[in-house]
């Protein structure tokens, strides 16, 4: 009885939690609930409607979702695959000094998203960018107009920049969780290195890989500043569209914007949900 009371807490104990809860309610939860409500309300008549969601079928909005999902999915996959190999290379690096340095670099660069990063990519890969010029001068190769940093392919390069170090940071603890004894016992039971990775190493890493994939996906899907700086209106993405509606640059019914916001919340919620579940699984395994 006493322990149960301690766990759930007395009413007075919950009072200590109230300020934080109120803050979250005021600046996060209630506004989102209003947003959800607004997405179902006709603006002039104040009646319930599905119209905003039906409006999402317009090519512009469909396109935004397709582009956003394609961009996030692609950069997440690239990030997971490259990040895992880079992570393993870092993990197995013999010098501890170098290892720490690379981890620190990942820590810093994964936060280099947004405007300065986007501009850095313009500096190297813009029309007159350093690499663009290098290719032109030394290889007579015209990067433009086939490639442009202000396009989908350019965005991929810029997004992978912050996805890669994030994946490296996520996967390193997973590699550390692979016990040396697993490999040794697999060996003593007759398995070679390939069999070990196929039957034990990769399956044990799998929850972390899935967690990485979903987190990277959400990370890219919600990104705004990088895309805004680079492509502006040349490419429609969900976050950019919502941004235009807030800024009032697009004179359209706010309702569609809200429906879009809810749509993106669902996509993000799903990926974060899967991420959480996968992380829990990974933790459970690392315990045994």
């Amino acid at each position: 009885m006493a322990s149960k009371q301690k766990k759930t807490g007395r009413t007075s104990d919950w009072l200590g939690f109230a300020p934080f809860l109120l803050f979250c309610l005021a600046f996060e939860i209630i506004p989102i609930i209003f947003l959800l409500r607004g997405s179902f309300i006709e603006k002039t008549t104040h009646l319930f409607t599905f119209q905003h969601y039906l409006d999402l079928q317009r090519p512009l909005y469909i396109n935004s979702f397709v582009n956003s999902i394609k961009l996030s999915g692609l950069t997440a996959i690239i990030g997971v695959v490259l990040g895992t190999f880079i992570g393993y290379a870092v993990y197995r690096w013999p010098s501890e000094r170098v290892r720490e340095l690379l981890i620190t670099l990942s820590d810093v660069t994964t936060n280099f998203a947004g405007v300065p990063l986007a501009f850095a990519f313009v500096v190297i890969l813009g029309m007159n960018g350093v690499i663009t010029q290098f290719l032109l001068q030394y290889f007579q190769y015209h990067l433009y107009p086939k490639f442009s940093i202000y396009s989908f392919s350019g965005l991929i390069l810029a997004y992978v920049y912050f996805q890669l170090p994030l994946m490296v940071l996520l996967i390193l603890p997973a590699f550390a969780g692979l016990k040396k004894e697993w490999q040794e016992s697999a060996q003593s039971l007759g398995a070679g290195p390939f069999k070990y990775w196929w039957r034990i190493g990769i399956p044990v890493l799998m929850p972390s890989l899935i967690a990485g994939l979903t987190l990277l996906f959400a990370n890219a899907f919600g990104a705004y500043a990088t895309a805004y700086t680079l492509v502006e209106s040349k490419l429609s993405l969900v976050t950019l569209q919502i941004g235009y509606m807030i800024a009032g640059e697009v004179r359209q019914d706010q309702g569609v914007g809200m429906a879009m916001a809810i749509g993106s919340l669902i996509i993000m919620g799903l990926s974060i949900g899967v991420y959480q579940a996968a992380t829990l699984r990974a933790r459970r395994w690392s315990k045994s």
């Binding site: 600046f27 996060e28 209630i30 506004p31 989102i32 209003f34 947003l35 607004g38 987190l215 959400a218 899907f221 919600g222 705004y224 969900v238 976050t239 919502i242 941004g243 509606m245 807030i246 706010q254 914007g257 809200m258 916001a261 993106s264 919340l265 993000m268 919620g269 990926s271 974060i272 949900g273």
Partner: peptide, 16 residues
Amino acid sequence: PFGIPMVVLALALVQV
């Protein structure tokens, strides 16, 4: 907060 795109948070806040 990881599951809420910043633009959505901004939209919700300026609406309410």
